[in-house]
Amino acid sequence: MNDIGQPLVVAMVRTRDASSSRARTPGYKRVSEVEKVVCASFILRGSAGHWWDTMSSIEDVNTLTWDRFKELFCNKYFIAPVRTMKMNEFIQLRQRRMTVGEYIRKFEQLSTFATHMINTKALKVERFLEGLRPKLYRDVSMARIQDVSYSQNCGESLSFRTSQTKD
């Protein structure tokens, strides 16, 4: 992974859903799943480019989703023990001394290695809340309304944390 592999992995781990702040930026056009794959494959060089050439002959790249591309890429460039280690990190993730913002970033980064654990909105929200500090978990959970999204819970956690620092 000497050439483009590592930067692309870092970029993929940081990739957010379409609900990211970029989606609200004027002039930002949503990119389809297939277009994401085309854009990512365009920057692959060296061994990663050769890997993509091989994948292109195996997979139907005209219908390849972004999630499938990430899965294939991570399977190639993250060996199984590393993926398992990152998944275990996600399982054990707790806010502890992190700020809420740091916890959110870490949750988003590590969650890419445990998507099967948070494959519904409810599971993602519950897992996020479980990792908060106990007092913050209690406050956010008490204020929580059914069917609140992950991003709303992040915002709620941040606002509770801000109000606590003012007291």
Score class of each variant (00 low, 15 high):
92 Q>W: 06
37 V>C: 01
62 N>L: 04
43 I>C: 07
119 N>K: 05
119 N>S: 12
53 D>T: 07
130 E>F: 12
126 E>Y: 06
134 P>H: 02
54 T>P: 06
164 Q>P: 01
72 L>K: 02
121 K>Q: 14
14 R>I: 11
33 E>I: 01
13 V>R: 02
118 I>H: 00
138 R>Y: 15
149 S>R: 03
127 R>F: 07
16 R>H: 07
57 S>A: 10
8 L>H: 00
7 P>K: 00
20 S>Y: 00
89 E>A: 05
76 K>M: 06
34 V>E: 09
13 V>I: 14
153 N>D: 09
138 R>S: 13
5 G>Y: 08
92 Q>H: 10
24 R>G: 10
73 F>L: 04
69 F>R: 00
45 R>K: 08
76 K>Y: 04
71 E>Y: 10
110 L>D: 01
50 H>S: 13
1 M>N: 10
116 H>W: 14
129 L>S: 04
102 E>S: 09
142 M>D: 15
64 L>K: 01
80 A>C: 08
25 T>W: 08
5 G>F: 09
116 H>R: 13
51 W>G: 07
122 A>R: 10
91 I>Q: 13
141 S>V: 14
125 V>P: 00
49 G>W: 02
110 L>W: 00
46 G>M: 02
137 Y>F: 12
25 T>L: 09
141 S>T: 15
163 S>W: 14
98 M>N: 03
101 G>C: 04
48 A>W: 01
49 G>V: 04
76 K>A: 05
113 F>G: 01
155 G>C: 08
22 R>Q: 10
132 L>A: 02
72 L>C: 05
79 I>W: 07
145 I>N: 12
100 V>T: 15
3 D>Y: 10
82 V>H: 05
27 G>Q: 04
60 D>M: 04
68 R>F: 07
47 S>L: 07
47 S>H: 09
103 Y>M: 03
66 W>G: 04
82 V>P: 02
82 V>I: 14
144 R>Q: 15
110 L>I: 05
82 V>E: 10
110 L>S: 02
65 T>Q: 02
100 V>P: 03
149 S>V: 07
105 R>S: 09
103 Y>W: 01
154 C>Q: 09
9 V>D: 04
154 C>P: 01
64 L>A: 00
60 D>T: 06
32 S>C: 03
13 V>M: 09
139 D>G: 00
22 R>Y: 09
117 M>L: 15
10 V>F: 08
143 A>D: 11
139 D>W: 11
46 G>E: 14
117 M>Y: 05
37 V>F: 03
42 F>D: 08
127 R>I: 12
56 S>C: 11
76 K>R: 13
17 D>H: 13
39 C>M: 11
2 N>A: 12
79 I>F: 08
121 K>N: 10
47 S>T: 15
8 L>T: 06
120 T>L: 02
109 Q>Y: 10
36 K>S: 07
138 R>F: 12
72 L>S: 03
93 L>C: 03
70 K>Y: 09
124 K>I: 07
83 R>M: 11
91 I>F: 06
150 Y>A: 00
34 V>C: 03
83 R>Q: 13
144 R>Y: 14
14 R>W: 08
68 R>T: 15
30 R>P: 15
62 N>C: 06
